[in-house]
Simulated assay, not measured.
Amino acid sequence: MRGEILSYDPTTGEGLISGDDLQRYAFTSAAAGLEPGRRVDFVVQDDQALSLMVLRDGPLAPAVYAPEPDLGLWGYFVRCITDLYIEGHGRARRKEYWSFALFHFLILMLAFMPIIGLAVLDAEAGYDMEAWGVAWICIVALVYFALIVPYVCVTIRRFHDVGLTGWLILIGLVPYVGGLFTFIVSLLPSQPDANVHGAPPKGSRALQTRQDRPA
Rank of each mutant, 00 (worst) to 15 (best):
M1H: 10
R2C: 07
R2L: 03
E4L: 14
L6P: 02
L6V: 15
S7I: 01
D9M: 10
G13W: 06
E14G: 01
L16R: 01
I17L: 01
I17N: 01
S18C: 10
S18R: 12
G19D: 00
Q23D: 14
R24Y: 13
Y25S: 03
T28P: 02
S29K: 06
A30W: 07
A30F: 12
G33E: 05
P36V: 01
P36R: 02
G37K: 00
R38C: 04
R39G: 05
D41H: 10
V43G: 06
V44I: 13
V44E: 11
Q48D: 10
Q48C: 09
S51M: 13
D57F: 07
D57S: 14
P59F: 14
P59E: 15
A61D: 15
A61W: 15
V64E: 14
A66Y: 00
P69L: 10
L71G: 01
L71V: 11
W74M: 14
Y76G: 14
F77Q: 03
I81N: 11
I81M: 10
T82Q: 13
T82F: 14
D83E: 14
L84C: 02
Y85E: 14
Y85I: 11
E87M: 12
H89A: 13
G90S: 00
G90K: 01
R91E: 06
R93Y: 15
R94A: 04
Y97E: 09
S99T: 09
L102V: 04
L102E: 02
F103D: 02
F105R: 05
L106A: 07
I107W: 01
I116E: 08
G117E: 02
L118R: 04
E124F: 15
E124W: 13
G126Y: 06
G126W: 04
Y127Q: 08
Y127R: 07
D128Y: 00
M129G: 06
W132E: 11
G133F: 04
G133K: 07
I137T: 15
A141M: 13
A141E: 08
L142W: 09
V149N: 04
V154K: 02
R157G: 01
F159E: 04
H160D: 03
D161S: 06
G163T: 05
T165V: 10
W167Q: 07
I169K: 03
I169D: 05
L170R: 09
G172R: 08
L173I: 10
V174C: 05
V177E: 07
G179Y: 03
F181Y: 13
F181K: 08
F183Y: 12
I184M: 03
S186I: 03
L188V: 13
L188F: 10
P189W: 02
Q191F: 01
P192N: 04
H197A: 13
H197V: 12
G198N: 07
G198W: 06
A199R: 00
K202G: 05
R205V: 10
Q208K: 12
T209H: 12
D212Q: 04
D212N: 09
A215T: 12
